[in-house]
């Protein structure tokens, strides 16, 4: 994997909706580069005979029967919402007038 540079960090920050100052971008580019390097050592440990995986335990087909379980009431669902209206989550306008 190529090294993480400052532009990558700025791009990721924008995608993740995180505001970062110039100094933070510089610092994070350095820190992330170290992390990426460290993780890379795992790839070196695994030989060609170890297949890539997305899960640490070799399981597959973990399913649930299609049976209705528990639900929240609207009040419970909305109990952690910063704002609500008509039993629904209220969120700021998302797009400006096009």
């Amino acid at each position: 994997m190529a090294a993480i540079n400052r532009d990558d960090v700025a791009h990721l920050a924008r995608l993740a909706h995180i505001e970062m100052s110039a100094e933070e971008l510089d610092r994070m580019a350095g820190e992330l580069a170290v992390i990426v390097e460290s993780v890379k050592s795992v790839s070196e440990a695994a030989g060609d005979d170890v297949p890539a995986t997305s899960h640490p335990i070799p399981l597959s087909n973990v399913f649930r029967e299609d049976v209705v379980g528990h639900t929240f009431t609207a009040d419970q669902a909305l109990s952690g919402a910063p704002d609500s209206d008509e039993n629904r989550f209220k969120v700021p306008a998302i797009l400006d007038e096009a």
């Binding site: 209206d85 629904r88 969120v91 700021p92 306008a93 998302i94 797009l95 096009a98």
Partner: peptide
């Protein structure tokens, strides 16, 4: 476009 807020 032009909405003040949205309900989810």
């Amino acid at each position: 476009q032009g909405a003040d807020f949205s309900l989810v």
